[in-house]
Amino acid sequence: MNGISFTLNGREVTYTGSAADRLLDVLRRDYGCTSVKCGCKEGECGACAVLVDGVLLNSCCVAMGAVDGAAIVTMEGYCKTERFAVLDRAFADLSAVQCGFCIPGMVLAAEALLAKNPHPTEAEIREGLSGNLCRCTGYNAIVNAVENAAKEGNGLW
């Protein structure tokens, strides 16, 4: 039986476990991607969000069999990009990171949003981040940071 092959942050890997296993568990356990956080395992908080072929998915709600042939990006890979650097500065400037647990998923949600819509309105940002719960910030700082990143990163997205 063949394994499940995919690229993880640009690296080709093959998973030989069950196709029914959760992507979230596999990323954390087998590939050490602990930036992918488990907040609920029900698709209701966004802490485990990753990019699969550029699309934002909650990795708790993805079975391994569904990522055969896909390109997966987690914060471990994304944090090395130029786009991340722009978001990083914007979040830092507004002290938008508090406990940090929602942040990897939140930042990937911001990336997914900006990739689709490089100049979103505030309402579009709020909608784009609406699947990622944050209990610390009240969201203002995060939303403003994404807005600033969109301005600063002109051309990157």
């Binding site: 966004g46 969000a49 934002l56 998915l57 709600c61 949600a109 949003l113 699947g131």
Partner: peptide, 9 residues
């Protein structure tokens, strides 16, 4: 429906 990540799947 829900939020972007759910609609994406």
């Amino acid at each position: 429906i829900a939020a972007p990540a759910i609609r994406n799947a």
